[in-house]
Amino acid sequence: MKSTSRRSFLKAGTAITAVAAGLTPATAHAGPTNVLSPNRLGVLVDTTVCIGCRNCEWACKRAHELETAPLEAYEDRTPLREMRRPDETALTVVNQFANPKAPDQPTTVKVQCMHCDHPACVSACIVGAISKQDDGAVLWDTDKCIGCRYCMVACPFQIPAFEYRKAIQPRIMKCDFCTDRRAAGMLPACVESCPVEALTFGPREELVRVAHDKVRRAPDRYVEHVYGEREVGGTSWMYLADRKFEQLAFPTLGESPAPGVSESIQHGIFAYFVPPVSLYALLGAVMWTARQRHDDEEDQS
């Protein structure tokens, strides 16, 4: 993860204080500079190929040292019966949808951070703890995060999760595009583990080409829509499907980047107020300690 100097954190802190002190919102309007590298990477998820084996879920947990049952336990498909969202215990989950074409073979869709090209979470973060990297990944920085959870509200895909159960240094948890693994020359864990390569990893531009090629060559198999190619200004993870994406619980989003929305909330409504961060932090701290104590008591009983 990118390390941050205490100084830049303090600088960001000063900025907040400045806003809090009632400076014009214009000073805070400087959005994140977002120069997208043409070589940025991505993943194309082909939901018509995915078999719902959840090997990706297992591999992701292993790669991120999250608690997981052994791989063979994933042969049990009952968890697919209920809709899940990625959370602090699972950075990616696979959901299941009825398949009218083959009722016995439900359609399965892997969900994780989309690594937006113009991420709402980045714009929403008032201390710059989340940033879009050159390689396409949207990363969260533990040293900068103040735990305000604006990113969670801002994300159009409801991805960032918060370790509510942790009193000390709770983290924002979301797919990090396996940045550490890739730095070591490996593929993202989920991509590597997928038995049918429903997840194709590569340069985003090439993936867009491949996606359209697939649709062109098998028009019966796909709807003519590469989800994420344009949604919210484009995402690094993109999807192919055999039906309208809203039928697979994808939000219907416009082509303009969502950040505009959250930025205006952030800088409009809250600009003249003391940021609720401190309030949140205080309330949160009380809540966590209370909860922690409660949990401890439960553990003992």
Partner: peptide
């Protein structure tokens, strides 16, 4: 799986499919 031509599945995926 780390390869140039992303247009067709790799060996493992082709077999599994």
């Amino acid at each position: 799986r780390k390869r140039e031509d992303l247009g067709k599945p790799d060996l493992k995926a082709a077999m599994h499919r």
